[in-house]
Simulated scan of single mutants.
Amino acid sequence: MGFLLTIWLFVPQNIRLYAYKLLVRMGLRLYGPTTSPSCFRLPFDLYAKAGRAVDVHEANALRFISQRVRGPVPSLVDVVPNPQYPGRVFMVMTRLPGDPLEGRLWDMSPKQRSLLASELKQLFDTMRSIPSDGSEDLRS
């Protein structure tokens, strides 16, 4: 974790949430909406997730996986309670390198799709093989 991020996380949550919502608006203007109503591309190679279905369990899972899997997995940057949806959170995470797959799958050759499927299978198999000790929780 970088020095600036460490300092940023000491800023009160309501101020961080306000800043993230401004970044969402900037991201919508720069990049347009994503295919998910709860996911937003932000400036600075970040993504945010917010809404009724985004809770602390998803944040815990992302942190758990990003600490244990080598490869293309986003890192959790911040989790802030979302006052718009009590019991839910506003998550900010890093963006993966490369171009979004959205809309490109059908332009791929069968060989490229097969390679993608193989790489995704390998990544999911790696995630499934991680032993869970159940000790990590962001709520504490």
Rank of each mutant, 00 (worst) to 15 (best):
M1A: 10
L5G: 06
T6Y: 02
L9V: 01
L9R: 15
F10D: 05
F10Q: 13
P12N: 05
P12E: 03
Q13R: 13
Q13E: 14
N14Q: 11
N14W: 11
I15R: 11
A19F: 07
A19D: 00
Y20T: 02
L23K: 15
R25H: 14
M26E: 04
G27W: 00
L28S: 03
L28D: 06
L30W: 06
Y31W: 11
T34G: 07
P37N: 10
P37Q: 13
S38Q: 14
C39R: 07
F40M: 10
R41W: 06
D45N: 13
D45K: 02
L46P: 01
L46V: 11
Y47V: 10
Y47W: 11
G51E: 10
V54Q: 02
D55F: 07
H57Q: 12
H57E: 15
N60W: 07
A61W: 09
L62N: 09
F64K: 00
F64S: 01
I65F: 12
Q67T: 09
Q67L: 12
Q67D: 11
Q67G: 10
V69T: 13
R70Y: 09
P72H: 09
P72E: 09
P74C: 03
S75A: 03
L76W: 03
V77S: 00
D78M: 00
V80P: 01
V80E: 02
P81H: 02
P83M: 07
Q84S: 09
Q84T: 10
Y85Q: 03
Y85S: 04
G87T: 02
G87C: 04
R88S: 01
R88P: 00
V89L: 06
F90E: 00
F90T: 04
M91D: 04
M91W: 00
M93C: 08
T94E: 02
R95D: 03
R95S: 11
P97N: 07
D99V: 08
D99A: 13
E102H: 02
G103V: 01
R104P: 01
R104Q: 12
W106T: 04
D107V: 00
M108I: 10
M108L: 15
K111T: 13
Q112D: 13
L115K: 14
L115A: 13
Q122M: 10
Q122I: 06
Q122A: 15
Q122G: 14
L123C: 11
L123Y: 04
L123A: 13
D125I: 07
T126I: 03
T126N: 00
R128H: 15
R128G: 09
S129E: 14
S129I: 09
I130Q: 00
I130F: 10
I130T: 05
I130W: 06
P131R: 11
S132P: 04
D133N: 15
D133K: 08
G134L: 02
S135G: 12
D137E: 12
L138M: 09
L138A: 08
R139F: 06
